[in-house]
């Protein structure tokens, strides 16, 4: 049940990125910077941290593929980027004691990895011709701020959901083991 709730939340975030957020995107009101919502990526990275890196990879593959199919016409870019970021951050998080601050720093590190990877890949295959300077200042930094704020807002509810999920999974495993013995 909780798992469906997690998938549903991610799916709704995925839809919000392309629809509701675009209505309120800053370019419409004449601002010069871009805010790129990476809400799904943030939550997937949190899955990698709290549940396990393997789950991060699983959710990263599914929602990355969805992003590729719907919002770009290249299959595989976000699928690879999101799952690898969730995996690496998932392992890195084992070094730290997780509280809101370390989660914020690691989550933003993951978003940074995805942003830089996508930028480098798209400049390589000529999907974009933006200079690094404009990418960094008018796109990366404002987006980092947006996603950081988003992470802080959803930190407690998502963490609670994920911890419940991992707890119930642990109990299931124990019950299985007991019945096996």
């Amino acid at each position: 049940m909780r798992r469906f709730f997690l998938v549903g939340t991610l799916f709704i975030l995925f839809l919000l990125e392309g629809t509701v957020f675009q209505v309120f995107a800053p370019e419409q009101y004449g601002f010069d910077f871009q805010l790129i919502p990476r809400f799904v990526t943030v939550v997937v990275i949190m899955i990698g941290m709290v549940l396990s890196p393997a789950y991060g990879v699983l959710y990263g593959v599914v929602f990355g593929l969805l992003h590729d199919l719907i919002y770009t016409d290249l299959v595989g870019v976000y699928m690879f980027g999101m799952s690898v970021a969730a995996y690496i951050i998932g392992y890195l998080s084992k070094v730290f004691h997780l509280n809101w601050f370390t989660t914020l720093i690691l989550g933003l590190l993951g978003v940074t990895m995805v942003e830089f990877y996508v930028y480098e890949l798209f400049s390589l295959i000529n999907v974009t011709d933006a200079s690094f300077h404009s990418f960094f200042y008018s796109r990366y930094l404002p987006s980092l701020l947006l996603n950081g704020i988003f992470l802080l807002i959803v930190y407690y509810p998502v963490k609670r959901l994920l911890e419940d999920l991992s707890e119930s999974r642990r109990q299931e495993n124990q019950a299985k083991r007991r019945s096996f013995l």
Partner: peptide, 14 residues
């Protein structure tokens, strides 16, 4: 219009 690519690299609308 019903959606737009959130990453601005691809300027695609649905």
């Amino acid at each position: 219009m019903i959606a737009r690519s959130p990453d601005r690299w691809n300027d695609l609308l649905t």
